[in-house]
Design a protein around this nucleic acid. Structure first.
Lengths: 210, 210
DNA sequence: CTGTTTACTATACGATCGAATAGTGTTTAA
DNA sequence: TTAAACACTATTCGATCGTATAGTAAACAG
C-alpha cells in the first residue's frame, strides 16, 4: 500500500494519467473541442474508464484544472521565494524571469487552459477566477511590490507592471510555435531564452533610453 | 447592382455574415470546438446555407481567416504609418501603443484565432504562417526599428523587443475578462487603457530605474 | 421563350458526441 | 467465509457531428 503509493499511487495512477492527458487536450483545443474518447485514447485507456472516474465532462474538467494548478503551485513558488535571498537584487530579478520562462515552457498547460477559458468567458472562467485567479493576482502583485521595494523594478503601478511582465513572459510561450516556424529558431531554446531575458532586463533597467 | 454593392454587397452579405459569425466562434472555441450548425445559428442562417457557401469546414475556416486578416490590414496600418509623422517621437510611440490596444480590444478576433491555432500547431498554423505571420513579423520588425532609429524604443534586438511589446499589449486583451472579474475594472475601459499605456511608456523610458 | 447558372433548402447518411446502465472481476471489511 | 466496496468494461441510447444529394425558385444568357 505505501509501496504502491510511493511508486506513483498505482491505485490512482490511471486516474492521474487520464487527468494529465485531459489537461493537455483542454489546453490545446478547449472544453468544447475535447472529447472523452480523445482523452481516453491519449491516456491509453477506454472511454468508459474516463467516465467511471469522471462521470461528466464538466467534472473531468474541474478536477483536471484543479490538478494542474496544484502541480503548478507545488513546483513554482519554491523559486519565487527562495531565489531573491542569496543573490543581488537585479540578478535575482533576472533569475526569476529566466525561471518563469523556463518553467512556463516546461509546463505550458496551465497557461493554455487559462487562455482557452478567457477566450470564452462563462461559468468555467468564473469558477477559475474565484478558485485560482484571485489568489494568483494577489501573489503576483506581492512579488512585484517586493521587487519594487528592492529597486529592481520601476516604481509604477504594481498591477499594471504585473500585466506587462506577465504579458512579456507568457505571450512568448503561447506564440512560440509561430516564432519557431517564422524565424526557424525555437523559442524554447536555451540561447533564445537567455537573449530574451537579457533584452527584457535591459528594457526594465532603462535600456539606451531616449 | 452597384447600389446593392454599395449597400454591403447584398449578393454576398449573407455569405459575409456567416464568415463574421464563424470568425468569432473560431476565435472563441477553436476549429474543433466550432460546429457548422453553431456558425449558422450565430449568423441567423440554416446549416445548409453555410455548407453551400463553404463546402467543408476547412474551407469555411480558411476563407474566414483570410477575411479576418484582410479586414485587419485594411484598418490597422493606416495609423501605424500616419501617426509617427505629425507628432514628436515619444508622443507618437505612446499614441501607437494606445491605438494598438484600442484596436485590439475592438477587433480581438485575429488575435484569438492566432492563439487558438498556436495552441494546436498543425497544418492550419503552417498555412497561417506562410500566408500571414511571415509578413506580420517583418512589418512589426520594421515598426520597431523605425521607433528605435528615432530613439523612442531601447536599442536592443528588434525582434525580441517586438515580442516583448506584442506580449505586453496583446496579452492584456486576452486576459481582459479575467482582469475584469478579479479587479472589478474592465480592462477595455478608457481609463484603464490610459493608465496602462502610461505605465508602459514609463517602463520603456527608464521609469524610476535602479 | 428557353436553357443554364445562381442562391438557397429539405432530407438523409454514417460517425461520433456525452451519457446511462448493466455488467465483470478483484479488494477490502466484517 | 461472506458480503460490501471498488476498479474497470461492454453495450446501448438519443443527439449532434460533418458531409452528400436532390430539389426549389429566381436571375440571367442565348
Amino acid at each position: 500500500m505505501d509501496k504502491a503509493e510511493a511508486a506513483g499511487g498505482d491505485r490512482n495512477c490511471r486516474r492521474i494519467a487520464i487527468m494529465e492527458a485531459a489537461a493537455q487536450l483542454f489546453g490545446q483545443v478547449g472544453f468544447e473541442g475535447t472529447s472523452m474518447k480523445a482523452v481516453a485514447s491519449a491516456a491509453g485507456e477506454k472511454k468508459t474508464l474516463v467516465q467511471y472516474h469522471f462521470r461528466y465532462k464538466q467534472q473531468l474538467w474541474e478536477e483536471t484544472v484543479a490538478y494542474v494548478w496544484q502541480q503548478r503551485d507545488e513546483a513554482l513558488p519554491r523559486f519565487v521565494s527562495i531565489a531573491p535571498d542569496d543573490l543581488s537584487a537585479m540578478d535575482a530579478m533576472e533569475e526569476l524571469c529566466r525561471y518563469i520562462l523556463r518553467f512556463t515552457f516546461a509546463n505550458p498547460t496551465w497557461v493554455k487552459i487559462m487562455f482557452q477559458e478567457a477566450s470564452t468567458p462563462g461559468p468555467r472562467l468564473d469558477w477559475m477566477v474565484e478558485r485560482f485567479f484571485i489568489r494568483d493576482f494577489a501573489g503576483g502583485k506581492g512579488v512585484v511590490e517586493l521587487a519594487q521595494a528592492r529597486g529592481v523594478l520601476p516604481d509604477v503601478d504594481p498591477m499594471h507592471l504585473l500585466y506587462t511582465l506577465s504579458g512579456a513572459l507568457i505571450y512568448l510561450v503561447n506564440v512560440a510555435p509561430i516564432i519557431e516556424r517564422v524565424t526557424g529558431q525555437g523559442a524554447d531554446d536555451e540561447a533564445f531564452i537567455e537573449q530574451y531575458v537579457a533584452t527584457l532586463m535591459q528594457i526594465l533597467s532603462g535600456g539606451k533610453r531616449q
